[in-house]
Simulated assay, not measured.
Amino acid sequence: MTSRGIKISRRGFIAAGTAALASPAFIRHAKAQEFVCKIAHTEGIGTPITNAFDAWAAAMNEKSGGRIDAQHFPAAQLGGLAEALEGSRIGTIQVTTAGPDSEEAIAPEIAAFGGAPGFIYKSEEHVDRVLQGELGQKCSDIARAKTGVEFVAYGETGFRHILAKRPVGNLADLAGLKIRVPQLRIWVDFWSLLGTAPTPLPYSEQYSALSTGIIDAIDSDVFSIVGFKFHEQAQHLTLTGHWFLPKAVRVNAAWLDSLPEDLRAMVRETAKEAFAEQRRINRANAAKTLEDLKGLGVQVQQLPAEELAKMEEKTAGLFDEFGSKSPETAEMIKAIRALG
């Protein structure tokens, strides 16, 4: 065998080829492709959902054999919720989390899965019947088709309550209360019907807004109150459970589709495992965290049942109003409530 006039024996050719295969340059070239997975969200450090993302990122890195490089940026390190949502849609980040109600403008039929418009979820068991079954998969399918993200799992922050600078013991105490709301129309309407002065603000601005008096109150789960130290600025917690917030684990669909089949399956499987454990921990630790808040000086009271009934009655019309966005939205609200 010759090459450019140089005579090479067959044995020499095979030896040369073997040497080339073993060379560092060839090994670098043959190394499996690495897929960067930036996980960015606004959840607090040390909260069950942030810990679940830590566990999930570690599982992806390990089980992919290094082919996925999962990087975790909690507590709004890469921007607020609006930036995280947009980034997950266009692929500048690969993963974030938010309530399905964040899709109100794009896919109103799945916004109700995020607890909108209040009092839609009756218990944790009700949440599981909805999100861990056929409806939860349907929600993910719609999100993929309309927003470019896939809901690979559902975590949760749990039931939300009112944290205020002054005591709230009944509906009359809500009059004129400047309460922070998500930048979503449905929550402005919800709190307006209850007589408050709803103030739309990004999630990351709540602490400073409480400090400066821009707002008098927020609604929050107990873990976030501790994680973001909201109790330093407001020390009256009224248990209402008006809103249960599931957290969809949102993966950019184009990134997910770019993975080899085995990695796609692994990403989905490990997400479900990590966030099943997150839900278990969240529910097991809620009562303890409430006691921790009391130890931090927070005054806790349960809103009386008759006052809760009034809250629900005053806002019940939002189901019809929200459902009027489309026949699909009305059908989805009906299906969620039927499982309660």
Rank of each mutant, 00 (worst) to 15 (best):
M1P: 08
I8N: 01
R11I: 09
A15L: 13
L21M: 14
S23E: 07
I27V: 14
I27N: 12
K38L: 10
G46F: 04
N51S: 11
D54W: 04
A55H: 09
G66R: 03
I68P: 09
I68A: 06
Q71H: 08
Q71W: 02
Q71P: 05
G80E: 11
E83A: 15
A84I: 02
G91L: 11
Q94V: 14
T96Q: 13
G99K: 05
D101P: 00
E104F: 09
E109P: 02
A111M: 01
G114Q: 06
G118I: 06
I120K: 03
L131S: 01
C139G: 00
F151T: 05
F151G: 02
Y154H: 04
G155E: 11
F159T: 08
L163R: 07
P167K: 09
V168M: 02
D173R: 09
D173I: 11
L174W: 07
R180I: 03
Q183P: 06
R185F: 05
W187L: 06
V188W: 02
G195K: 13
T196D: 05
A197F: 11
P198D: 09
P200F: 06
P202A: 00
E205I: 00
L210H: 02
T212E: 07
D216V: 04
I218R: 06
I225R: 07
K229R: 15
K229F: 01
L239D: 03
G241T: 02
R250T: 04
V251E: 10
S258P: 09
E261L: 11
A265S: 15
T270M: 12
K272Y: 02
A274K: 07
A276K: 13
A287C: 08
T289L: 05
Q301D: 13
A305S: 15
T315E: 09
L318V: 09
D320R: 13
E321I: 07
P327R: 04
E328D: 14
K334H: 07
G340E: 01
G340R: 00
